[in-house]
Amino acid sequence: MPVTEPIRVGRDTKEELRRLKVHPRETYDDVIRRLIDVYRKCQQ
């Protein structure tokens, strides 16, 4: 099982992350990683 760390995000941020899920069972970690990938691609 992967090691996890708790992070604090505001309610508004959590709601935005929830809206960005492509599947209801997708984790917030998956959403954040996808956002990071998109960000990195835009920086190239």
Rank of each mutant, 00 (worst) to 15 (best):
P6E: 06
K14P: 00
V9G: 00
Q43N: 14
I32G: 01
P2M: 06
R8G: 09
E16I: 08
R33C: 05
R40L: 12
C42W: 10
I32F: 05
M1D: 10
R11P: 04
R33V: 03
V9C: 14
G10A: 08
D12A: 11
I7R: 13
K21H: 11
E5C: 08
M1Y: 14
D29Q: 10
R18D: 10
L17D: 01
I32S: 02
R33L: 10
R34S: 05
E15C: 06
E5L: 13
V31I: 07
P24H: 09
R33E: 04
E16Q: 11
K14D: 07
K41H: 02
P24Q: 02
Q44P: 02
V22T: 09
I32E: 01
Y28W: 04
V22H: 13
G10Y: 03
G10L: 09
E16R: 12
Y39E: 10
D30M: 13
E26I: 03
R34C: 01
V31G: 03
D37P: 02
K21C: 10
T4H: 11
P2F: 08
R34H: 05
G10E: 09
V31T: 07
R33M: 07
R40F: 07
E5N: 08
D29G: 12
E15G: 03
V31D: 03
L35F: 04
L35P: 01
K14Y: 14
K14T: 00
R40S: 01
M1C: 10
L20Y: 02
R25Y: 09
R33Y: 02
P2H: 08
K14I: 00
D29Y: 05
D12H: 04
E15W: 10
R18M: 09
P2W: 03
D30R: 13
R19L: 15
G10W: 00
I32M: 03
Y28T: 01
R34E: 02
G10H: 08
Y39S: 04
Q44V: 12
L20R: 13
R18I: 07
Y28F: 15
E16A: 12
V9F: 14
L17M: 07
R40D: 05
Y28R: 04
D37W: 02
Y28Q: 03
H23V: 11
R8M: 11
G10F: 07
V22C: 03
E15P: 02
R33S: 07
R25E: 15
K21W: 11
T27P: 06
G10S: 15
L35T: 00
V38S: 00
R19Y: 11
R19C: 14
V22K: 15
R11K: 08
V3A: 06
R8Q: 13
T27A: 13
R11I: 05
E15D: 15
V38M: 03
I7A: 13
R19F: 11
I36R: 04
R40C: 04
P24E: 06
I7E: 01
E26H: 06
G10D: 08
K14E: 14
D29V: 05
T4W: 05
V31Q: 06
R8P: 01
E16C: 01
Y39D: 07
I7M: 15
R8F: 11
T27H: 06
P6Q: 05
T27C: 06
R33Q: 08
H23P: 04
K41R: 13
H23F: 10
Q44A: 14
Y39V: 01
L20P: 02
R40P: 00
D12P: 00
G10N: 08
I7Q: 08
Q44E: 13
V22P: 01
T27S: 15
Y39P: 00
K41C: 02
